[in-house]
């Protein structure tokens, strides 16, 4: 199964870079693909022409396959899907909804469709809709998260579907990768570790916050809104969680106060490096990420750690 998925995509190693908002730009995606993994471009809420430009830029930097993450909630989603198909993108990952409506179009264009899921029911639904594989993401991950941990979610999803499962959430080294493979993964997706790559455009403040982060330094905001998000804690998250707590007793909470706090916070983190006001999305594994490296070195290190573990397993 592992071979067939990475062969189908045409990559050397079963390592996918997460499509982190504002961070998954052409320079990072191209570097990951050039290093033998699968680079991903984020599309967020950008209009299709911005995405076409990013795709063209990426193509100038790599002749290897790379993918695009399509945010199904985006107001421009129809046009984005057209651009992705026209530009012969090989892999699409999807978030925030079900891609069923676009499945026929993707298949006709030869796109491998990989939705992100956070439960068994959602995984089964995606398989029925014709997904080629799924990314199963545990709540250890940074950014928008579900409820289950990677350790518990993955084996249950692996048992429930017949398509390859890519594991995300909590992986930053060869040990995590090996663990995921033993749980049944066909590949792994890493986000936080690639935020600190040399080729990542994330502001140095963001990179340093991840490098200095310890195990307990992420918090989950937005539980009350039904859209929980994992971020590194700072002044913004303290204020945000305080407002959430105040609202928890309201029968009809007014989320506009929270929206005002969060407005533009992601850009402030990634682009401006605003230490106090930015939303620094990172996974719980940030504590393990302690150096800035090239994507090539990250992938080679992961693979050598992984190979060492699986060829010389420590038997108790």
């Amino acid at each position: 199964m592992t071979q067939s998925l990475i062969e189908q995509i045409g990559i050397d190693y079963p390592i996918i870079q997460g499509a982190m908002s504002w961070v998954a730009t052409p320079s990072l995606a191209a570097a990951v693909s050039n290093a033998g993994g699968l680079g991903m471009l984020g599309s967020g809420h950008e209009p299709s022409e911005v995405i076409r430009k990013a795709i063209k830029e990426t193509k100038e930097m790599t002749d290897k396959p790379f993918g695009v993450n399509v945010l199904l909630l985006s107001p421009y989603v129809d046009d984005v899907v057209d651009v992705v198909c026209e530009e012969n993108i090989k892999v699409v990952t999807t978030g925030a909804g079900t891609p069923g409506k676009y499945m026929k179009r993707f298949k006709e264009a030869g796109v491998t469709v990989i939705p992100v899921v956070a439960s068994v029911a959602l995984a089964r639904r995606m398989e029925k809709e014709g997904a080629d594989a799924i990314i199963c993401e545990g709540m250890e991950a940074g950014g928008h998260i579900g409820k289950l941990t990677t350790m518990t979610l993955v084996p249950q999803v692996v048992d429930a579907v017949d398509i390859p499962v890519i594991v995300a959430g909590g992986i930053a080294d060869g040990r995590g990768m090996a663990a995921a493979m033993f749980l049944g993964a066909a590949a792994v997706q890493l986000g936080t570790r690639f935020v600190v790559a040399h080729e990542s455009i994330a502001h140095d403040t963001f990179k340093q916050r991840i490098i200095k982060a310890r195990d307990i330094d992420t918090v989950v905001t937005g539980q009350i809104t039904g859209h929980p998000v994992r971020v590194l804690r700072n002044k913004l998250t303290r204020e945000y969680l305080k407002v959430e707590k105040e609202m928890s007793s309201d029968e009809h909470p007014d989320f506009s106060r929270l929206e005002a706090l969060a407005k533009g916070a992601l850009r402030k983190a990634v682009v401006e490096g605003d230490k106090h006001g930015g939303s620094f999305m990172a996974g719980q594994i940030a504590g393990l990420v302690n150096k800035e490296q090239s994507c090539h070195d990250i992938i080679q290190e992961l693979m050598s750690e992984y190979d060492e573990l699986v060829s010389h397993p420590k038997i108790f």
């Binding site: 956070a118 439960s119 029911a121 959602l122 089964r124 639904r125 579900g146 409820k147 039904g226």
Partner: peptide, 10 residues
Amino acid sequence: DSLDLFQIIN
């Protein structure tokens, strides 16, 4: 929530 919704549909 959305996970409940997909579970119910499933």
